[in-house]
Amino acid sequence: MEREMKPAAKGALFVFTAGCLSYIFLKVPAAVGFANPELARLVTMHLPCAYVALVAATIAAWHGIAYLRKRDMASDIKSYVGAKIAFLYCFLTTITGSMFAKVQWGSFWNWDPRQTAVAVLLLVYAAYFTLRASIEDPERRAALSAVYVLFASILTPMLGYVIPTFFIDQSLHPKFAKFDVTYRMAIYPMAIALVWHLVWMFRLSVRAEKVNQAIAELELTSEGGMA
């Protein structure tokens, strides 16, 4: 069984997150130079989500490699959960980004290179889940999805950062953004809060996945026994 997060830690996480949120809304100033300076504060949600997606992708890759080396099914579950969380945060990054785009650039979706690249990234993870669904044998599924999740995790920073920054010239996104200290003081703690939450969610989801698999197995054998 995975170690569970203690109630005190959960409380602390809650307070910390609430603190980050109040800092964003009470202290962070409006950003001059944007179409809507007030709502430029959205980056303090948008960027942390992107960072956490990267962290989750790294977790998925790490456990994918671990599976290929040791062939332990527990690593497969962890890698799968990591990929799920990476997908979730890619999605949240897209959502917050698209709201930012609406208030600043006038439309929810502009086909900006980075938006397109992240849309493709969502497709990569969707392909990963389809791949998993299309293989019956658990060990083969684990091995093949471990291989694909490595590609997915390499692509996460590539599509999210490297290609839109260095390979394509025109973009609405800033290239090497230098944030004001007040913004950095909001972005990094929020990223910490989300990573902290990720640890909690990761352990829980791994536990859930294990229990579900065990139940499915038991049900399968008991049905076989009845027939």
Binding site: V120, A127, L131, I135, Y148, F167
Partner: peptide
């Protein structure tokens, strides 16, 4: 090789490969 071992085959190859090909495609 990945797709050959799944039950989906045909359609899945494009879905699995195109996102990975994107950097080569752009360049």
């Amino acid at each position: 090789a990945l797709v050959a071992q799944t039950s989906a085959r045909g359609g899945l190859l494009a879905a699995l490969s195109f996102p990975i090909l994107l950097p080569a495609f752009v360049s």
